[in-house]
Design a protein around this nucleic acid. Structure first.
Lengths: 252, 252
DNA sequence: GAAGATTTTGGAAGATATTGCAAGAAACGC
DNA sequence: GCGTTTCTTGCAATATCTTCCAAAATCTTC
């Protein structure tokens, strides 16, 4: 086995496990620990891997997925259900605005067959469509908000102020009878511009958000056209939604 | 067996296994290691394979374009060298514009310690920095150009027209004594805006680009401040660059 | 087909790179 | 702290590379 082959195997292995001890690696490629150590040093200078005491870890594990993976784990199946149900509401060839956030990301995953035109300020959503050239994806500009991979700031707001779309697919941090709220102040302006630009506004809201209040008020319930969620909505909020003429879709 | 037949068999075998040692290959084609070595040297000059200590590796044929497979760190060592050398030219806390393209991507990989402010229209570069929140990354808006993961169109051009930066790190498709050219017409306007926005323009150019002419003319040599490359520049182009007062940096 | 020129091949010698090991230094866990 | 593990550094053994050369094969030319 040549040196490069070994290094590739080490890299491949780390892609799977994210972290590995030198012993483990030396066994994997059937060579001495010294050699593996040298390989890892080399991979580190290439920026592929970071050395730690006793092993190595991948530099940017699953960088395309961003950290919202971690948030993902506990409510994955609900969000996926919501995502699929919400995608069903979209007609072919509509133009869509897709908000940042895990739930909206899951909607995006089911959108490809509809071949819509998509506007988004979410890097994960952009990455999702970057390879497939079936549909046109427009990314708003903006500053990357680190952990979430959202583009924020004036560039983003302006981008959405300039456009019009059939549907906006949104998410949020909390819903009460008074309206929708969100936790990141930076996102509020952008979300307002998104909602303003769309003829029809769909909020994807997992059940944990009902009754919860986040820091910044985003809009009142009248602004919404559809709510997609995973469990029946609590009575008081359901009543308020009906009064605001919001269609409620429960994915089960 | 003729030499050509041997080389074809070697190539075919490498298509299957990706890596092979010279011993392995010499057994495969039933000849001495010396001959196989010569074959491999020949295949390397044709760009089919890459020699490694003790063996040979297939060169990924789709190498020149940006695959979203940025993990594909092999056979890019020239670009990696250029990337590191170019990153050395950057002072801490400068503001940078980073062009799309594999070479610029490799520059970006070495930039984190410099903590610059970064503007880019490249999704791979954006993803690279999205996880790390050490540095501020601004993404231009635009339509995703599918295979390359570049943002193009008016949103992108406008984004770069609005800003100013210390350095632009650029790449291109070809360099002749007449200037720089690039293959994607959509990129030209954006690259011009990038160059215009920067006080200092650095082109990262791997040696295969010298003497090559791409479809669209981007700029003349006077526009450039620095060229970073991996091999000594051909005499005629070197002369033209000197005349245009371009600093030449060779990474070796 | 034969003689000579050219190319290809296999191998040898010395140069270079890689590998595994060992001793001392540094880091880690308790 | 102290024992253990891991890291660094230097070194010798090994493997591979480069560069040469002579033998063999192939091509030219007549």
């Amino acid at each position: 086995m040549t040196g490069e082959e070994r290094q590739k195997r080490i890299e491949d292995h780390l892609l799977k496990v994210e972290f590995a001890s030198l012993d483990e690696l030396s066994e994997l490629v059937d060579t001495s620990v010294s050699t593996v150590r040298r390989d890892v040093i080399l991979l580190e200078t290439r920026g592929v891997v970071r050395r730690t005491h006793g092993g190595a870890r991948l530099v940017n594990p699953k960088s395309d997925e961003f950290t919202f993976n971690t948030r993902d784990t506990h409510q994955l199946s609900e969000k996926e259900l919501i995502g699929r149900k919400c995608a069903d509401l979209i007609q072919p060839n509509q133009t869509l605005i897709i908000d940042a956030g895990t739930t909206c990301y899951h909607v995006a995953r089911y959108l490809e067959p509809k071949a819509p035109q998509v506007f988004t300020n979410s890097l994960p959503v952009a990455n999702l469509f970057a390879a497939a050239n079936k549909l046109e994806v427009v990314v708003s500009g903006g500053v990357i908000y680190p952990r979430l991979g959202v583009l924020v700031g004036p560039l983003a707001v302006e981008a959405f102020q300039k456009i019009r779309a059939d549907v906006a697919i949104m998410s949020c941090g909390g819903v009460t009878t008074d309206g929708i709220s969100n936790s990141h102040g930076l996102l509020i302006d952008i979300q307002r511009a998104m909602i303003h630009a769309a003829r029809r506004v769909i909020f994807c809201i997992d059940s944990s958000k009902f009754g919860r209040l986040s820091i910044s008020q985003l809009c009142d319930l009248e602004t919404i056209d559809v709510v997609v969620t995973d469990k029946p909505v609590p009575a008081d909020i359901a009543k308020a939604l009906r009064k605001a003429e919001v269609e409620i879709v429960v994915a089960q």
